[in-house]
Amino acid sequence: MYTILDKKVLSPGVKQIVVSAPLIARKARPGEFVILRVDENGERIPLTIADFDRQAGTVTLIFQEVGATTRRLGRLETGDALSDLAGPLGKPTHIEKMGTVVCVGGGIGIAPIYPIARGMKEAGNRVISILGARTRELLILEQEMKAVSDLVYVTTDDGSYGRRGLVTDVLKELLDSGEPIAEVVAVGPVVMMRAVAETTRPYGVKTVVSLNPIMVDGTGMCGGCRVSVGGQTKFACVDGPEFDGHQVDFAGLMARQRMYAEREKYADNQTYQKEGGCRCRH
């Protein structure tokens, strides 16, 4: 059973669960993801692995409650179990000693960037992290990121914490500072990843982004997660989820993510009405 051993609320609507999954923990590497079902009849959804503990046999997942399924997931408590959990899926992040690596995490994207930053640090890189959030209370994993980074910058849209502005403002200054940057890794909302890729493009700095398109099986069988990269169709689940940010067709990706927008809203409202209660009760 995929029992939840620990649960934390990281910020409003963002939760962290530690799940018992010894087989997955044994193989997990930074950048990989899992597919889960909350309950019988449940939808299959992908979540990037935020952390893993091979000894304890657990994986850590961090998610934002954005629809019917993530809201149901958010209602599970310590001691409850997920119906299904499969993984680790996708290709792991390419980690080696390169020099200075900048890790950019936006919003919930800070969760998957954490094991990548840690891996980059362990491989001997100088790790500079830039964390972005809309406002102070939505910033997650700041202490964890500090522990695995040489330098951490924080930006908030409203200036309530760190620097007011966007992650790309800091990134541009770093690029202009003359410090040689071997690679930028960015995980966050699609608009942020696109902005990061556009910021680094003129400097010719390699930029890796982690995509989160709609998936069903997660093993290459359905092709629902296809995305155009360098003019070629790739399946994010088996060819990715990480790709060269300078080659990704972000506009196409954003259109595909809206495919079920109306239905998702409908399902979410149904869940809300049927199960009742305030959506922000946790």
């Binding site: 009849n41 939808e43 019917a68 399902a267 869940t271």
Partner: peptide, 9 residues
């Protein structure tokens, strides 16, 4: 759908 929450278009 939506009793089974996976959508299809």
């Amino acid at each position: 759908f939506p009793e089974h929450p996976t959508p299809v278009y």
